[in-house]
């Protein structure tokens, strides 16, 4: 059986909120290392990969591998019933028909309990190769969100160019063009504002802004976001969570001329 207790419902609320417009029905794969989810969007252009390690829960118990097929719209409805600071416990039997969610207020004696019916989801699982990326950029997640939103007003695509000079986000559309360039930057007082660029060779790739703006819904989960790029491979956008848990998005590039 599965029993996983989260100190704050807010974490799961934010994760589901960040991915529910990209993917609809997903398997939450539970085993003794934690709860994982991998799902592609309908167009097979973007992929969500979530890992909530067992250390992110206290306690965490999962005796055998269980796949919980959950519709994220249903999960959102139930998670709205939890206060952000509620303690959340997920429970399921070994061959479950439902997943049980319990919300407890740490401050009062309220205890709410909901069951969500599970679905059989036949999901394609993609093997993501270990990649040594040519460029890794860590930057404030709010800054990345603003850049994506700003450029989307002009164009549907953005080119991301990373050189020794810095990283340049550029677009051009019907009304004109625009770009934002960031250089490495260290803020000792506020390290969450740092921009760190780690480059082994220059990269230039083009991506659809629609998906990037969608990924940025995860900005509330982490002050910093990490972008990993290599020429001609999908972009990795990573929001690191506590205890080595993470929410990652992969986006296939636009290619050819």
């Amino acid at each position: 059986m599965l029993e996983a207790r989260l100190e704050q419902a807010n974490l799961l609320k934010k994760v589901v909120d960040a991915i529910k417009d990209l993917v609809q029905d997903c398997n939450f794969d539970c085993n003794d290392s934690g709860i994982a989810l991998q799902a592609m969007d309908n167009s097979h252009v973007a992929l969500v990969s979530m890992m909530l390690k067992s250390e992110s829960f206290s306690p965490f118990r999962c005796d055998r591998n269980i796949a919980l097929g959950i519709n994220l719209t249903s999960l959102t409805k139930v998670l709205r019933c939890a206060a952000n600071e509620d303690i959340l416990t997920l429970k399921a039997e070994d061959a479950p028909d439902v997943v049980n969610l319990v919300f407890e207020s740490a401050e009062s004696d309220r205890l709410s309990e909901y069951d969500i019916k599970l679905m059989d989801i036949d999901q394609e699982h993609l093997g993501i190769p270990e990649t040594e990326y040519a460029a890794t950029i860590s930057m404030p997640s709010a800054e990345f969100q603003k850049i994506c939103r700003d450029l989307m007003a002009l164009s549907e695509s953005v080119s991301i160019e990373c050189t020794k000079e810095g990283v340049k986000f550029a677009c051009s559309g019907d009304i004109g063009s625009g770009s934002v360039t960031l250089r490495s930057h260290t803020n000792v007082e506020k390290p969450q504002l740092n921009v760190e660029i780690d480059l082994s060779e220059p990269v230039a790739l083009t991506f659809s802004l629609k998906y990037l703006v969608n990924f940025c819904k995860a900005s509330g989960l982490s002050e910093q976001v990490r972008l990993c790029l290599s020429n001609e491979v999908p972009l990795l956008v990573e929001y690191a969570l506590s205890n080595n848990s993470y929410l990652r998005f992969y986006l296939a590039p636009k290619i050819g001329d």
Binding site: L47, L126, T206
Partner: peptide
């Protein structure tokens, strides 16, 4: 113009 690739081009199915 560039065209949108899909992930299947890069990631194999398991």
């Amino acid at each position: 113009p560039k065209s949108q690739a899909t992930l299947g081009k890069f990631f194999g199915t398991q």
